[in-house]
Amino acid sequence: MKFALRVNGKLQSIDVAPDTPLLYVLRNDLQLDGPKFGCGLGQCGACTVILQGQAIRSCSVRVDAVGRKEITTLEGLGTRGQLHAVQEAFLREQAAQCGYCINGMIMTAKAFLDKNSNPTDEAIRQALAGNLCRCGTHIEILRAVQRAAQKGRPA
């Protein structure tokens, strides 16, 4: 079945079964490798993308449920030459070990900070509570989100 998706500001047409999880379309059809497969169950957050301002688990959303809503992946936030402020903060804090979970951390943090520009440490922890990291990079990630929040705060 043919679908037209708005991904990172571009209209993309694809031809897949309607129940295909969005993650496989992003990775395999559009070759957007930012979102990762972690559990396929919406439990770990590695596949997170932003759908019209909401951080969602792309492994658990059918492609036919997306419609024309704007999808943003890690690639759509910024590029290596011009990182988004949240990516820049993760780089500055060296907030990645294996980095497999980092897509989900950055995308979840971005959607969270867009709604809450002055969060407490506790609020950041709660916002990331559904994102798993096994290398134990939590402290660097928390610092990165705090750094991004401070940068985005109105002076």
Binding site: L74, T79, R80, L91, Q94, A95, G99, I102, I106
Partner: peptide, 13 residues
């Protein structure tokens, strides 16, 4: 700084 982190935060690693 680690050489792999820029690619990891940009999704290109």
């Amino acid at each position: 700084p680690r050489v792999d982190v820029p690619g990891k935060v940009a999704g290109t690693w």
